[in-house]
Nucleic acid binder design. Structure first.
Length: 587
RNA sequence: GCCCCCGUAGCUCAGCGGAUAGAGCAGGCGCCUUCUAAGCGCUUGGCCGUAGGUUCGAGUCCUACCGGGGGCGCCA
């Protein structure tokens, strides 16, 4: 364990001791320590405590102040207002803390691992086979990727699952069509781009759909195919596999554009649970969790009713004997709990599926697959809206292709990079343009809370000023520029120096990185990290403006400020990495 | 009808029961012989949807209502 005790913890500890010394009967009281704009920290806990102990808050606060150990960490503590404590820490404590973070041999800035890490399965980035990816897929992918990284960084054992839509009745239609037109997915050359793969699939899908809707005999043959597929008929499976493989070429190209790692072994689609469906239904029916109703196998809930007031069930098995997606999701839970030994199941899924997951989770609880120790949670995200506040569509009313959106963002960012860059090659412009453009798209998504609807405004996110990813990338690039120009001078913490206001504010904020990461991971809330990083960049930019680094007054101050630059850069880099966003060395 | 989410500056959004509610964009005024102006400083702009309640203290918790979005038997 190489974690560094944060300044907050150090101050908290000293205040808690003082509190218990002043009020022994409330020894475990929380001082409620917060950052403050009136001091480095403020403690709010005394007010509630005074009420409880029937004491005068200000008098109690004064007593607590007398017991606070000052000097090493706390520089001063004073009573303020009705009974708050305002606390200032020493410049030395700030710099020593940062020095310890910089010296972390694991390079993780002294961020502690979770005390009791568990195993979390994160279900995210779930595209559908033979279908184009659109903006809805973007949110699940971007949010899920960041949550995975956050959890892994805290030491959680994370198992990624991409629950792709690779099963269901529409495959009967596709497979039958391919069987009758066997060369539709043939490749012109060995190397096929994702774009070509999707184009092939799209063309085939449309043709198959047209035939399905117009030709009754084809429709019948297609339905028979579904039966063959579920029965595992080898020829049918081989054709099905062609669709999956072709789609994967496309998926990988999109995720590559998103600068996101997707591993083959993490792709376990709906088909992966096919063998478990019958067993899942049997277990539910035998335990009485599910009952037959109108021919279907159903689970009922007291608080789920339809418009007519009648209870609406979760249908596990349809009246025709087929399995719906509830059966698949319930089987996936069994797999993740009993085979993967997960204790937390996280679903990064559209909020519109909340009722479905609520019912699925409740069913799993009744079946005993989930309980107080093994829990499931839907990280629900809102709908992507256009500038008009309606679901994001093109002017013609069609859903927007994800790749088009990403290309547009990259193109606009590249234009700015080219305009600003003095001596970059075309290759470098393309690379930076992608890093800036994709970063902008991701940051826009990750900087607001996931659960609300999300207004997609490319102009705003690629405007490249204000609260966007570029602001953070720019701050990072400026730091790197200084470090490159430092020459002989090396970054070195100088705890004996007095700090300016800008230096103190920056230092205190860098210290808060660990706590922010813990919170963002625990709450599956990347936007808290994004907010922290924006603030960090703001504080750095302010420092940059007020404090000359290379032209500081003394060599010691140059070293100290270089050190502040360096630790800020490392924090920015690490934080951005947890959001899945690159930090170019130059911009 | 029932359930879920949202309602904070003109717009897009933060805001863990704590002091004077914050950012960005947009608007106004300034700042590049000095480490990257994709930047910085100052400034205009708020009955935190409404009404009650809990609390020493409510944008935050509870209840009701209003407005917007979503969901609600065999699609996923």
């Amino acid at each position: 364990m190489t974690s560094v005790t944060s300044l907050t913890s150090a101050v908290h500890q000293r205040l808690a001791s003082a509190l218990s010394a002043a009020l022994p009967e409330n020894a475990d009281a929380d001082p409620l320590l917060r950052r403050s704009d009136r001091a480095d920290f403020q403690a709010n806990g005394i007010l509630a405590l005074a009420k409880k102990a029937k004491a005068n808050p200000r008098e109690l606060a004064t007593q607590v102040v007398e017991h606070v150990v000052t000097g090493d960490v706390i520089r001063s503590v004073e009573v303020s207002g009705p009974g708050f404590l305002n606390i200032m820490v020493t410049d030395r404590a700030i710099m020593e803390n940062l020095a310890a973070r910089a010296a972390d041999p694991e390079g993780r800035l002294g961020v502690p691992y979770a005390e009791r890490p568990g195993t979390t399965v994160v279900d995210y980035a779930q595209p559908n086979v033979a279908k184009e990816m659109h903006v809805g897929h973007l949110r699940s992918a971007v949010i899920g990727d960041s949550v995975v990284k956050l959890l892994e960084f805290t030491g959680e054992n994370v198992i990624r699952r991409h629950h792709i839509g690779d099963w269901g009745t529409q495959f009967g239609m596709l497979i039958q069509y391919l069987d009758e037109h066997p060369h539709e997915l043939d490749h012109q050359s060995a190397e096929v781009t994702g774009e070509e793969a999707m184009s092939n699939l799209g063309r085939l899908y449309k043709a198959a759909r047209k035939l399905f809707d117009s030709d009754e005999e084809f429709k019948t043959r297609a339905r028979r195919r579904v039966v063959d597929l579920q029965a595992g008929d080898p020829h049918t499976m081989a054709l099905w596999q062609k669709f999956v493989d072709e789609s994967k070429i496309y998926f990988y190209s999109v995720f590559d554009k998103l600068d996101m790692e997707i591993r083959d072994e993490d792709i376990v689609g709906e088909s992966g649970y096919n063998d478990m469906l019958a067993e899942t239904c049997r277990l539910l029916e035998e335990s009485g969790v599910a009952v037959r109703s109108e021919g279907a196998l159903c689970v009922f809930f007291d608080d789920v009713k339809g418009p007519d007031g009648k209870p609406v069930p979760l249908i596990v098995q349809k009246s025709d004997g087929g399995y719906g997606y509830a059966a698949t999701d319930l089987s996936a839970i069994r797999d993740r709990v009993f085979n993967l030994k997960a204790d937390t199941l996280l679903y990064v899924v559209d909020a519109r599926q909340s009722l479905h997951f609520k019912m699925v989770f409740e069913t799993a609880r009744r079946a005993g697959w989930l309980n107080d120790d093994v829990t499931a949670y839907q990280l629900a995200f809102g709908t992507v809206l256009g500038e008009d506040g309606k679901p994001f569509k093109t002017r013609e009313g069609e859903t927007v292709r994800l790749v088009d959106l990403l290309d547009e963002a990259i193109e606009r960012a590249s234009a700015v990079v080219r305009e600003k860059a003095q001596d970059l090659s075309e290759e470098e412009i393309a690379e930076r343009g992608a890093q800036v453009g994709i970063g902008a798209v991701k940051y826009a998504d990750l900087s607001t809370s996931a659960n609300r609807d999300y207004k997609f405004d490319l102009d705003q996110m690629v405007s490249l000023n204000g609260d966007t990813s570029v602001y953070l990338q720019y701050a990072y690039a400026r730091i790197q520029s200084i470090l490159r120009k430092a020459g002989e001078a090396r970054p070195a913490a100088r705890p004996d120096l007095d700090l300016t206001e800008a230096e103190r504010a920056l230092g205190l904020h860098v210290d808060a990185f660990a706590e922010t990461v813990r919170e963002a991971a625990a709450e599956y809330a990347p936007h808290k990290l994004a907010g922290y990083l924006y603030q960090l960049a703001t504080l750095y930019t302010s420092f940059y403006d007020k404090c000359p680094v290379l032209k500081a007054e003394t060599p010691e101050q140059v070293e100290n400020r270089l050190f502040l630059c360096d630790i800020t850069a490392r924090t920015l880099h690490q934080g951005m990495a947890l959001l899945g966003i690159r930090t170019p060395e130059r911009l």
